[in-house]
Design a protein around this nucleic acid. Structure first.
Lengths: 242, 242
DNA sequence: CCGTTGTGAGAGCGGTGCTCTCGCTTGAGA
DNA sequence: TCTCAAGCGAGAGCACCGCTCTCACAACGG
């Protein structure tokens, strides 16, 4: 698979990478809306039409960046989980660690975050290639909760009757070994976690919240409880810092 | 103030409104990124340069649409609150009604929602004029919780020590008559609520969640509890539908 | 009545995404 | 080893974009 096929193939791979790198640079500098094929080509000393040999359209270049961004934030989450698990931290602490590292990644890469968790671009519909990388962060949280379930059990939250069919469907799709009520809470918590990050990053907290990290930690702690993570052995005060 | 000043002024008001209407139409059809001054002018039978008599730049037109969108969703929230309060519903039910109507507005106006709660446009920084309208939805929730506090009290959540200074600051800014811990929870709940809506609207729930309204209701119910709203007189099961 | 002021039209600037054609180079198969 | 299709970059060009400037006209206030 990874055999060296020849100078041509090698050059193609290198040029493709260079285009993505420059595009990512412009993305970080100016945001997705100002990403310009011509500007990328100019910076690379190419002519704009040559770029179309590598990406059929601007949207395809954006798709590549989207996939990369999903992979990057997914990798950050996986690394945070691995590190926290390696330190044998209790599960609420792991939950907190992963959430904080996801937030840190978002703060460090605001435009890439906006690309994947912000408003979708106009006519653009996410191609199939993005669904795998897009699920990596969620998979980390699922794995974390699964570990907690196996290791020390969960305080299974209650589940409205009307939500039961959907809960069983989601459970079959996402984590068949978890209680349906936990899966529902987990999906809700997932959306709410990114709601906190998005509000901070997109400026809704301007002039409202100053101590954003502390607020985030408090909310994430509460979200961990809502999915059933047990606070160590005995239940401490709800608001204690982990 | 509202005297009829003459044909010129009148025409200006009408043309300005027509431009905004057409722009909103294009916004709904194609999204903010594809909103084109030339296209708006073309549709209105004007020449593009004439538009600059009414809006100094494309960004100014966008700002006007942003303010309108904030006002629209704020108005929806206020109407929902007034209606629910008029029906003398218990406070968790009012909370649910407002949240659901906000979500309904978002589903009905996805592009306008994306304009105000999605990724900010590249170089654009929200002008001062937007902060008033932007706070209307939040004010509704604050008022609702204040009513509950006065009428039947709140189950004040716990508050981490490290968050106390920020909590008192926010309380002074937002709702001096509410317990600081409630204000913190309320701000968190606010962000998390829009996180749920954004995930649904921006496609993160695709292939994951089907019964979105039910999931939303369950999460909103839980958020209401998290800010201290009391479940009627006695505490029912956590997951019961309101 | 006259001059100021608001207005629309038009041309034009530099930019964009994208297409097409034209040669050159590369590399695999005859 | 030669040949020829495929890959590639350059360039011209299309239709669009936001925005600026000038010019002529119409409305309006003094």
């Amino acid at each position: 698979m990874s055999t060296i096929r020849g100078a041509r193939e090698r050059a193609r791979i290198e040029v493709t990478a260079a285009i993505k790198d420059e595009a990512r640079r412009q993305l970080a500098a100016e945001g997705a809306a100002k990403l310009s094929l011509r500007a990328v080509a100019r910076e690379l000393g190419m002519v704009s039409s040559a770029l179309y040999r590598y990406f059929p359209s601007r949207d395809d270049l954006l798709t590549a960046l989207i996939v990369d961004a999903y992979d990057a934030i997914g990798e950050a989450a996986e690394a945070a989980h691995a590190k926290a698990a390696g330190q044998a931290a209790v599960h609420p602490a792991r939950w907190m660690a992963v959430a904080c590292d996801v937030r840190d990644w978002a703060l460090a890469h605001p435009h890439e975050y906006a690309l994947i968790y912000g408003s979708p671009v106009p006519g653009y519909t996410a191609p199939q290639a993005t669904v795998g990388p897009a699920s990596r962060v969620g998979q980390v949280f699922i794995g974390l909760v699964r570990d907690a379930h196996v290791a020390e059990g969960l305080a299974v939250p209650s589940l409205a009757a009307e939500l039961r069919p959907e809960a069983t469907r989601m459970t079959a799709d996402l984590a068949a070994d978890l209680p349906p009520a936990v899966v529902v809470s987990l999906v809700s918590a997932w959306a709410q976690l990114f709601g906190l990050i998005s509000f901070e990053l997109f400026g809704q907290f301007n002039r409202v919240v100053e101590a954003r990290e502390q607020l985030f930690r408090q909310a994430v702690h509460e979200l961990g409880r809502s999915v059933g993570l047990l606070d160590g052995r005995s239940a401490g005060a709800a608001g204690t810092r982990i």
